[in-house]
């Protein structure tokens, strides 16, 4: 292993020196390359496929499952969204019917979409900046202390369904921990039934979601900060960078752009999918639908009412929202440091 590490190091030095280790490998084919193939026998598409049989064999198990359980369902969901389908009878094509009902006649969906957007707009960016900020501060520590702090911040996101402990914190009587503390401090006169009071539900769900949200993106940032070349900082301070904030903006962030983009995907996707905590902490349906999100609405129609066509339309809207906002943020992030 040590020998291999050395080898990898050697290779990268050779690469830095501008010597192409891979000179003897065939050049990479860009995506559009397939269309521009020369009609010589050696490069024909069929030959290239034949040559790579082993590659296809190796990817087959994964991609067969991937197509069955991810690609096909997305396509099915989009198709079914134009039908009325209750599982027992074959689906009936009804055009835009589901979407019209969804956006014009479904009051609860309007609440759901409003709540989901509030959730996403608040927890998405906040959790993203929390991940970045904490990772950045953690980077100032070393060794065991650093591993420990990382653990404290990361642990909630991996502790399974342990967020049910918030049920005890937010209990509606004076034995609830939050109520107990506030009563003790004389900030409230009576115990507040937090999760059954409309104006508090969304706020607390957001807090719990933020508590859970330092996940994969957070680890990515910690890792990304470690890989930044230390000499860049020395060079920057010679160039007149005065404080850590300038350092962050001009050196750190541009150097970890790939990680920033990946972290964004993780945080944004997560922020649209809030459902389980809402059902567990606020109940389903929650008081006046204060905790209803697109996903709980989807679960309602998909797993309880078996209106699969309608549920598919909800799923399609969710899909477009998630992918659309991801693409948008990716576009914005490309501009960091430019």
């Amino acid at each position: 292993m040590a020998c291999q590490q050395l080898r990898i190091k050697g290779e990268s030095i050779v690469k830095d020196m501008g010597i192409n280790v891979n000179a003897d490998r065939p050049r990479r084919w860009p995506l559009g390359g397939i269309l521009k193939l020369q009609p010589t026998e050696e490069w024909s598409l069929i030959n290239r496929i034949k040559k790579n049989v082993a590659s296809y064999v190796l990817i087959a198990p994964y991609f067969i499952l991937f197509f069955i359980f991810t690609v096909l369902p997305v396509a099915m969901s989009m198709t079914l969204s134009f039908t009325s389908f209750n599982v027992l009878e074959p689906p009936q094509f009804i055009g835009w019917g589901n979407y019209i009902r969804l956006f014009l006649n479904d009051d609860i969906f309007r609440i759901a979409i409003k709540n989901t957007l509030i959730f996403a707009v608040i927890t998405g960016p906040i959790s993203y900046f929390m991940c970045l900020l904490f990772a950045w501060i953690i980077n100032e520590f070393k060794g065991k202390l650093r591993a420990f702090i990382t653990l404290i911040f990361y642990a909630p996101s991996i502790s399974g369904n342990a967020y049910v402990v918030w049920n005890l914190i937010l209990r509606g009587d004076k034995y609830g921990i939050l109520n107990g503390i506030l009563l003790q401090l004389d900030l409230i006169d009576d115990a507040v039934i937090w999760m059954k009071t409309e104006k508090y539900v969304l706020m607390f769900l957001i807090i719990v979601q933020l508590w859970l949200s330092l996940g994969t993106g957070f680890l990515t940032f910690i890792a990304g900060l470690q890989t930044i070349d230390k000499t860049l900082y020395e060079a920057a301070s010679i160039d007149g960078i005065k404080n850590r904030w300038q350092e962050l903006w001009y050196v750190t962030l541009p150097s970890m752009k790939p990680q920033l983009m990946f972290g964004a995907v993780m945080q944004i996707t997560q922020s649209f999918a809030v459902a389980d905590i809402s059902v567990q902490l606020a109940g389903n349906p929650s008081v006046n639908y204060a905790g209803t999100t697109i996903v709980t609405h989807l679960m309602d129609y998909g797993s309880i009412r078996y209106e699969m066509g309608y549920a598919s339309a909800i799923a399609t809207v969710l899909f477009l929202l998630m992918v659309g906002s991801n693409k948008l943020v990716q576009k914005l992030l490309r501009k960091v440091g430019n």
Partner: peptide, 26 residues
């Protein structure tokens, strides 16, 4: 380097952008 590699991988990256709830019904 095999034909279809880039498109397959970009579909996988796309799949990171939505959660399992989207595909729940199908």
């Amino acid at each position: 380097d095999f034909p279809g590699k880039n498109i397959l991988f970009s579909i996988v990256v796309l799949s990171l952008m939505f959660t399992w709830q989207v595909t729940q019904v199908p």
